[in-house]
Nucleic acid binder design. Sequence first.
RNA 1: UGGGGCGUCGUCUAAGGGUAGGACAUCAGACUUUGACUCUGAGUAUCGUGGUUCGAAUCCACGCGCCCCAGCCA
Length: 697
Amino acid sequence: MSDTRSLNFIEALVEADNASGRWQGRVHTRFPPEPNGYLHVGHAKSIILNSGLARRYGGKFNLRFDDTNPAKEEQEYVDSIVNDVRWLGGEFEDRLFFASDYFAQMYDWAEALVKQGKAYVCDLSADQMREYRGTLTEPGRNSPFRDRAVDENLDLLRRMKQGEFAPGTRTLRAKIDMASGNINLRDPVMYRIVKEHHHRQGDAWVIFPSYDWSHGLEDSIERITHSICTLEFENHRPLYDWFLDQLGLYHPQQIEFAKLQLTYTVLSKRNLLYLVTNGHVAGWDDPRMPTIAGMRRRGYTSQALRTFCEDIGVTKNDTVIDLVRLENAVRDHLNATAPRRMAVLSPLKVVVTNYPEGQVEHVEVQNNPEDPQAGVRAVPFSRELFIERDDFMEDPPKKFFRLAPGKEVRLRGAYFVTCTGLVKDERGAVTEVHCTYDPATKGANAPDGRKVKGTIHWVSAAHAVEAEVRVYDRLFAAEFPGAAHEGTPGVERPFLLDLNPRSLEVVRGRLEPSLAAAAPGERFQFERLGYFTIDADSKPGVLVVNRTVALKDAWVKELAADEGGAAKAPAVAPPAPKPKAPPPAPTAPPAEIEFGDFAKVSLRAGRVLAAKKVEKADKLLELSVDLGESGPRTIVSGIAEAFAPEALVGRNVVVVTNLKPRALKGIESRGMILASGSGKSLSLVNPGDVPPGTAVS
RNA sequence: UGGGGCGUCGUCUAAGGGUAGGACAUCAGACUUUGACUCUGAGUAUCGUGGUUCGAAUCCACGCGCCCCAGCCA
């Protein structure tokens, strides 16, 4: 650590402790996951914080499974977690621990507490206990079992441990204060009866310690100095302290920080589990998942994750980090380290008409301009090539620097070529582009000094290797998944409505031949496209490639700014640029559009499922519209003056479905409702009685 | 209406009585054999109201806003 950044509040605290000699200079942290799911980026922040502290201050870092609830925990999760922590650089060496290994010790301490008269066996049912607990504003009442004699408590506790009682019939509770303003102090449960097989203890135990009872003990046993957890445990700290104090045990300091939250991302284990079990993704390690395993498979590097976590800082502020920060960290690291290759994802054939048929030569291309050490490679060039469809336009706007009739561009690493003609199919689509090349420009500038504005990538048609390219985009289309649908009647999992229908697009790519030998896990930059990694699904001769993250693209911004986003619908939506000016009312057509533009409009029948007013907007309604897709779309429409929300539910409407999503009052609208008229005398275009999704002309 | 925590550019984050700084984003420009990278420039912030002080983001008071807590989950 040779950085100059200022200390975060935990580092400052540790340094103060070191200065005062509070822990004799020791720093010992831990990461205590419950093995009931895969780790995600939020956990990465914690792992990096805890292990980073140990590294920075010459201390130690433990990995400890908090496996105190046999009902939810599995060995599969233990294995994945160990793997993920290691991958992230969490150096726990031989200090891999399990809370369940401390069960006997914890039990002895529980008996000690009973003997001190500070814990009792309670026969209240869960429901009764809730009633006795009181509410946030009213104190609780003492359990009728609170004053049992020590001997009776001891006897009962031992019999609980023997398995004499049914689950749920009794608990061991700490005797603290039923009137405390902090509900956690109202005689919290220490042990509950659970008759389930434990992944490590088997059936040896039928009583299991609660978090509040066990966590401090675990830390104490391991001689942790700084027990770092997230903000929601702040209310539990008095308990952490109470148990340790009553027992007179070694007493680490609990410190709370704000957990990581990310835009366009869902991070609760419950929701992630739901996505996995309901097939919205292919598994915990689906590259769209925010899990460590998913990000690794996506091609993220642990270095990038570490930089990201360092970068966002550690505070107690409840904040949401913009996903682009993570993506930038990944780009940064990969820009410096990933070898460049050429690959064409949406091929358009180019014939270099003045290049001899059958001739092949190899051009030398740098592996990484950012890193001269990376050397060069030879790429075959021939008469027939593929270029990206997006890199050719028959009738380009003025600022288009790529290939177009009569225009000259550089083929990266090879020659200048000039477009001399094109071939179309019967439907008018361009199928082939003809060019001539200038032999004098090989790998260099033109001797006559003429410049080209654009450089495009290419592959030799005959030499290209085909690959399945999985083009991933963010899993959710909304910045705060589900937030806009919170409280919508009948919607029990609002975040599902914001799933990005284009989070995965699979294409047949043509890759430069050197990629044929690439191994799973290798990462590359496909020039001008993005960073990609070879997926584990690859088999000899069958390449599967994942897009890790796209390169930034100033050109799509340009297009969006100039043409209101209508000119081009890329295969994968780039982050929608925020409109500069307030967007025009969605029902008002642009002043003038071209015939060609109009032909690109896709109209489909939809049915309105729900509608409500948009806050702070007089004219806008937020609609949920069924278009026969996997989930309804959210569409914001300026028709509030003409229609009451309730009047729209169930109506059939015509929707422009291929518009670039656009944020209106912070709500992402994915489509436009067709209407005629204006203001209060609007009428909706009716598609007739057809199923949602039907194309309308 | 109980207890706990948090409020600084659009978003993160520094400064903790003495010039409100940085990063990301945005915009403008330069460079470019990747419309990438890099570089230059610009705009935008101390929740509010009082008070203490030569001086307040910082200290005090009173408000306001947001988050967490009523599992035999962690």
